Simulated scan of single mutants.
Amino acid sequence: MDATQSRAYRSPRRQAQAEATRAAIVQAAGRLFAGRGYAGTTMQAIADEAGVAVESVYKAGSKAQLLRRAHDEAVAGDDRPIALHERDEVRAALAVDDQRDLIRTFSRAVADRARTLTPISRAFVQAAGTDPAVNASWEELESHRLTDLGRLVGSVAALGPLREGLTVERGATLLWTTLNHQAGWLVAHHLGWDDDQVADWMTETITCLLLPTT
């Protein structure tokens, strides 16, 4: 085998092991960021939580990169590289052909994020206050969230009228500023609501903000 062939060769088994290690590190980081916050989580603590050497953690990414990856996995629900709006459950919700049913189905599809995502989001906001790179990443995430909510409002508007005078852009802004990580923390962690209760709250909130009274 020549040098070119040797460099091109990759062991599927080693690659799978490396991916499993990276996944374990990101999951461990996510648990610690959610429980201890960003400042309270060290790379050594992540290594201990994941059961790997600290060198493996550094290879997986910087602390800020691990925070972003843990956040992205919490948003999506797993480590598959598929955006939230492209997930089967969200696509199915946005394809519902009745405004109120669409809102209800969407809310049930994403309600669990209030429980799993908001602790990491709190850590992200705390870190963003002291780290410009993390702050830039957070601003990017918030921009994506606004875009995703615009897709939701656009889908609702395609099925019937919104509240009088309400545009899709304004509706997206209302949802973006209301259904945020702080509100999710309050209902899922401070009040201790389960996923069904959070879904009902989301459904009521979105319906009140977007739809005409009947």
Rank of each mutant, 00 (worst) to 15 (best):
E164R: 07
V153G: 10
G129P: 04
R115N: 07
D97V: 06
A133W: 11
L84A: 13
I82Y: 12
E86D: 12
T147C: 10
P132L: 13
I82L: 14
L84G: 03
D148T: 09
L159S: 00
R100W: 09
W138R: 14
E142S: 14
R91C: 02
S155C: 10
I120W: 07
D78Y: 04
V125T: 12
A158L: 01
L94C: 03
R91N: 00
V153W: 11
L94Y: 03
S107I: 09
R104D: 15
R151I: 11
R80Q: 15
R113N: 10
N135D: 15
L94T: 01
A128W: 13
V90L: 01
R145Q: 13
R100Q: 14
L146A: 02
I82N: 09
V134L: 07
V125K: 06
V110R: 02
A136E: 09
R91Y: 00
F106D: 01
E139G: 02
L162V: 02
R108N: 09
E142Y: 10
A109W: 11
V75L: 13
R80D: 13
V134P: 11
R163F: 00
P119Y: 13
R104I: 04
N135L: 12
L84E: 09
T105S: 10
L141A: 15
L166N: 05
I103V: 14
A158C: 04
L102A: 06
R80T: 14
S107V: 09
A133L: 15
W138Y: 15
F124S: 13
V96P: 00
A123Q: 07
G150M: 10
A95H: 04
L159F: 08
I103G: 02
D72T: 12
V75H: 04
E73I: 04
L94N: 00
E140D: 10
T105N: 04
D78F: 03
S137I: 07
T147Q: 14
P161C: 03
L102V: 06
L152Q: 02
D88I: 11
D98V: 05
L166W: 06
L152C: 04
L162G: 02
R151F: 13
